[in-house]
C-alpha cells in the first residue's frame, strides 16, 4: 500500500503526519520525502543516510560537425530548449523537459543525450523504516523530473509483491502535488479548520478526486477556526480518519523537532488507529496495487 500525504495549503502538518505514521508502522515501510523543493522529513525522522546519488535529466548535446541547420529540432521543441539561428545551434539546457523529441527527430543524428543536474536522491534507515528523499538543486525550476526519479528508486526498493510506503507530498494542487500522489493507493489530505486551510482543502479535493483513489482527511489543529471543513467532508462522503487537537504544547514540541507521537500516548493511539483505518481504506482495491485509468 502506498499512502500519499498531501494538503493543498502548506504548513498544515503533512510532515508531522508522515513522520508520526512512520513511528507507529507495524511492518516494513519506506518513508519518502517527495517535497523535493523543501524536504523536511529527515529533520524529524533523523535517519542514518547510507547512500545518495545525483539525479540528472537528458538534455541535447550538439555535434556541430554533423548538423545541417535544418531546424527540425527547433521546430519540434515546445520549450525552446534548442534553437537554430542561421548557422548556429543554441541549446538552453535549463529549459529542457527531457522529452527526447529533438534526439528522435534529428535526421543527421547530430544530437546525443547530455545531462542537467536536477538534484540529489538519498536514502537510509531509521529503526525498521527505510528512508528515501529527493532534494532539488537550488536554481532548478522543475521539480517533477526529480520526483519521477525518486519514485523510480522507490519502485526498486519495494518488494515485487507490493510493500508499504508513505509519501510526504509537496503543498499545493498543481503539477508537483499531482505528481506526488498519482502513483499512490490512498491519498490522505491534511488540513486545518481555518478559512485558508478549508479553501485549499476544497482545491485539493477537486484536484485529487478525479484520480479515482480513496481519499481521506486528517484534521490538524482541531478546535481552531470554524467547522466548514467538517460539513464539507460529510457532504462529499470524505472520511475524517484522525483529528489532532490544537494545543500550544504540540506546536512547541514540533518546533523542537519532536515527533508528536513521542510526546503524548494519546496522540500515539490516534496514529495507530489512523494506520489501521488507512489499511481498511486501501483494501477494496484489487490486490493493493494502484490501478490506473
Amino acid at each position: 500500500m502506498i499512502v500519499a500525504v498531501a494538503s493543498g495549503k502548506g504548513g498544515t502538518g503533512k510532515t508531522t503526519v508522515t513522520a508520526s505514521l512512520a513511528t507507529v508502522w507495524d511492518g516494513p515501510l519506506v518513508a519518502v520525502d517527495l517535497d523535493v523543493e523543501e524536504p523536511n522529513l529527515h529533520l524529524f525522522l533523523q535517519p542514518a543516510i547510507s547512500g545518495s546519488q545525483t539525479a540528472h535529466m537528458p538534455v541535447p548535446l550538439v555535434d556541430e560537425s554533423r548538423c545541417t541547420y535544418c531546424g527540425a529540432c527547433s521546430d519540434l521543441c515546445q520549450f525552446k530548449a534548442i534553437s537554430v539561428m542561421g548557422q548556429l545551434v543554441l541549446t538552453f539546457p535549463e529549459m529542457c523537459h527531457g522529452c527526447g523529441g529533438c534526439l528522435a527527430v534529428c535526421p543527421e543524428k547530430a544530437l546525443s543525450p547530455g545531462q542537467r543536474e536536477l538534484g540529489e536522491i538519498s536514502w537510509g534507515r531509521v529503526g525498521q523504516v527505510v528512508f528515501l528523499s529527493g532534494r532539488l538543486r537550488i536554481g532548478e525550476a522543475m521539480s517533477p523530473p526529480l520526483m519521477r526519479r525518486v519514485k523510480a528508486k522507490l519502485e526498486q526498493m519495494l518488494p515485487a509483491n507490493g510493500g508499504d510506503a508513505i509519501i510526504d507530498a509537496p503543498p499545493g494542487v498543481s503539477c508537483p502535488a499531482v505528481n506526488a500522489v498519482i502513483d499512490s493507493d490512498v491519498v490522505l489530505l491534511v488540513t486545518e479548520p481555518t478559512p485558508f486551510g478549508f479553501y485549499d482543502f476544497q482545491l485539493a479535493w477537486e484536484a485529487f478526486s478525479p484520480l479515482g483513489k480513496p481519499l481521506a482527511a486528517v484534521i490538524n489543529r482541531a478546535g481552531l477556526g470554524h467547522d466548514a471543513v467538517y460539513r464539507f467532508c460529510r457532504e462529499k462522503g470524505l472520511p475524517i480518519l484522525a483529528e489532532i487537537p490544537y494545543d500550544r504544547s504540540i506546536a512547541e514540541a514540533y518546533a523542537r523537532g519532536r515527533i508528536i507521537t513521542e510526546v503524548s500516548a494519546g496522540l500515539r493511539e490516534n496514529f495507530i488507529s489512523l494506520r489501521d483505518k488507512l489499511r481498511d481504506l486501501a483494501r477494496p482495491g484489487p490486490s493493493g496495487k494502484a490501478v490506473h485509468a
Binding site: 504548513g11 523543493e37 525550476a141 521539480s143 499545493g172
Partner: peptide, 10 residues
C-alpha cells in the same frame, strides 16, 4: 508568493 523554491517562486 508561493511556498517552495521552484518555477513559480523563481
Amino acid at each position: 508568493g508561493a511556498p517552495g523554491i521552484g518555477c513559480p517562486v523563481i
